[in-house]
Design a protein around this nucleic acid. Structure first.
Lengths: 203, 203
DNA sequence: GTCTATAGTGGGATAGAC
DNA sequence: GTCTATCCCACTATAGAC
């Protein structure tokens, strides 16, 4: 986790502070002064830890994606039942996303602000994750557990829409726990919203 | 449509040009000079048509929401069957969204950049639309067509996630037509991804 | 590792001629 | 309705002391 860069106290808090501001105000509208204020230092001091503001956005994006990829892979490792793999994936995605809500939101919405070279790196990581999701679904489809009349590509994009964009309204302090939301999502995604699906795959 | 403000040639193209740039680069990173360049004028000339850059973002958001509200209401008016109303809503939403892709994307992602007073106005319009969706779903649920084991609030948020965030990867020139995507979405949302749903509500 | 001070740039918006 | 010229401001990043 900490390999490759020194993480002092200020350095460690830097990413979280930046993610919070980038998410609340947007990357371009957040000033280095505001980030420094949260950390209790002057803005010039930031440049001892980073080379540029864009570094922060890049590291936030990488960190968010590596976490979600790692935790999702871990959750489905060793699980054989095709539909159970889907359930595990949904739960891991929701949990990881909510544990890292600011970073994840920023990664999803601020890709445009990165330089082309770094944007490519993030897109590659995203593709890697989308491939993981698609392969879980494709496995379930090949096992006869998922419908075959809609291309896996769109089954996959739909699940990602449901998963990713929950983050914009999900409130940790609300009445809904991450696990319960993951249950709703799984049941709805697999069983549908129709009456006949009532109780489907809800545990 | 044109009531309340004069829409000269430059004025009319202004919103579209701004929406395109705001979507490609983000609101904060788009300069008035770039907008002017597209229109073939100097940036000072923009201020004959608008009072501020923020005006553009506000008008884009209002225009996008009024369109989607209007077209969705029109699509379900006079339709009685509860599930058919859901289908109509999905088709109208997808069509309207894609016809106005830049504006709609900007409305969804740049809310933060508006001043509090104007943000409130946009949030009110969004709430109005979400109420419309929730009421269609609630009608179907009360008619016994939708499951009752998941609160309508979450049935509604899930459908909005599926609908709204398609816009970020949907390509009009791709192999998928808006109507076909709406069919997939309807079938998936109502019937689910499981094998047993195969062919569900697909026309 | 943090500070003060400032360089250097580019932004939104305005003045006033045409 | 568009232009040139410019104001004023805030930003990122750097220099160099401590």
């Amino acid at each position: 986790m900490e390999t490759g860069s020194v993480r002092t106290s200020t350095g460690g808090r830097l990413l979280d502070a930046a993610a919070k501001l980038f998410w609340n105000k947007g990357y371009a509208s957040t000033t280095t002064r505001e980030i420094a204020e949260i950390l209790g230092v002057r803005k010039a001091s930031l440049y001892h830890h980073i080379a540029s503001k864009e570094d922060l956005l890049f590291e936030i994006s990488v960190s968010s994606l590596e976490r979600i990829i790692g935790e999702t892979q871990a959750a489905i490792a060793g699980v054989d039942d095709p539909l159970e793999r889907v359930r595990m994936l949904v739960h891991a995605h929701v949990a990881s996303m909510i544990a890292d809500q600011n970073k994840h939101s920023v990664m999803l919405t601020e890709l445009r602000a990165l330089s082309p070279a770094r944007r490519t790196q993030i897109v590659t990581l995203r593709d890697e994750y989308e491939q993981l999701v698609a392969s879980v679904l494709d496995g379930a489809r090949k096992a006869g557990a998922l419908r075959a009349d809609i291309p896996v590509k769109y089954l996959s994009l739909s699940l990602l829409n449901l998963l990713n964009w929950s983050i914009f309204w999900f409130q940790l302090d609300g009445e809904l726990s991450p696990d319960r939301w993951a249950d709703y999502l799984t049941s709805l995604y697999l069983g549908g919203a129709q009456k006949s699906a009532e109780g489907a795959v809800l545990r």
